[in-house]
Design a protein around this nucleic acid. Structure first.
Lengths: 203, 203
DNA sequence: GAACAGGTAGAAGGAACGTTCTATCTGCTA
DNA sequence: TAGCAGATAGAACGTTCCTTCTACCTGTTC
């Protein structure tokens, strides 16, 4: 079991350099999976858009499912880093952090090509709760709900868990509305609903 | 262009009888499309589950897209009829109607095999806004939002359209949470958020 | 009993799917 | 300069997809 010639490269090659081909694959997959849906996009499309060969593709991602899992993991990682940055920039200002989250959500919802929450969309396509996709989705949602509950606690909300769930509902609902209804009108509704739920008042 | 032998039967045969085969196809499609996703289910599966032959299938639905459109149309029709019945049963009691809607949503969310909103899920799979699926989704959502706005007006809400959008967000968010998070805990969050948003008070 | 709508059975089309293969090249690093 | 990781090119595998075909049977209705 020495495996002297496992031909699969990791995130960064044995040399320590990150693989440019792998990055291109992930960039293409992110674009295509999010914009068109996961099942609607074949590996052929990803390979063409990333300008790699089939062999290179399968060396980095032994199966399409591996690419899908990585696609979701990368998105989650980006979101975690963004929130960490916001928290670092506004130490102690929990209300400011919450407002920044809402603002970011609204801005994202207005951006061209917005197609709703990538996790919710992915879960719609994968019904088996044991599929890696669903695990990635559950993990991300648990993280975000936890962050929300933490924020609610810090804001002194009497029932942080309940408030966190309500904020989650508003988040999911706002993203759905921005995708499927008039995306220009969600901002006011989201902000008003958020205030009603949290009991949060601006000065 | 006389078309003397258009071999496609309609909802009910020329004899006036509804087609049993067609009903079986729609029942199977409803189950499979909702539970597993539309792209994940091939016509082969539907044909097998409905116990019809390929020819019979394609006589009723010339293409898979036609079946998908009908699947969504039937669901929408059922929902419209259900709401009409509730309104007829509670004439003038707008608060009661609203509560009945919320109760039905909670009950549905708790039912086994619940997998979120079929329209949101379908839209996740079909990214092209001109696809028949998206038209069906948009139509259903416009209808439901309109019903909500009407209800809010009747309840004397100062901004019925805004409230309707907020209720829509809560509806979508609650269904998403019931599918992806802990479905036993959504009821309290939904009811509390709904009250906060609508300003609705029970005696 | 002729006509016909609606059904049965199973084979087969072409395209797209995810995946594997052989064979060759490039550019570090040792 | 030898070696090796990582990339290249392109053909090909078997499956599944949606769809079409030929040929025959059944029950009602005029």
């Amino acid at each position: 079991m020495g495996d002297p010639a496992d031909s699969r490269p990791a995130t960064r090659g044995a040399s320590g350099r990150p693989s440019a081909a792998r990055e291109r694959i992930l960039t293409a997959a992110d674009r295509l999976f999010y914009r068109e849906g996961i099942r609607a996009v074949g590996v052929e499309r990803v390979i063409a858009e990333a300008q790699v060969t089939r062999v290179t593709f399968y060396r980095h991602f032994p199966a399409k499912d591996d690419l899908i899992a990585t696609y979701l993991a990368v998105r989650s990682q980006r979101e975690r880093e963004a929130l960490a940055e916001v928290r670092a920039a506004l130490p102690g200002d929990h209300g400011g952090v919450l407002r920044a989250i809402v603002d970011a959500l609204i801005a994202e919802s207005r951006s061209p090509g917005f197609r709703g929450c990538p996790y919710v969309n992915a879960a719609a396509e994968y019904a088996d709760p044991d599929h890696p996709v669903r695990h990635a989705v559950a993990e991300h949602r648990a993280w975000f709900t936890g962050q929300m509950a933490e924020l609610m606690t810090e804001l002194g909300h009497p029932d942080p868990d309940l408030a966190a769930e309500q904020m989650m509902m508003l988040r999911d609902g706002a993203m759905t509305a921005a995708y499927l209804d008039d995306r220009e009108r969600i901002a006011a509704a989201l902000v008003a609903a958020g205030r009603a739920v949290v009991g949060y008042r601006e000065e």
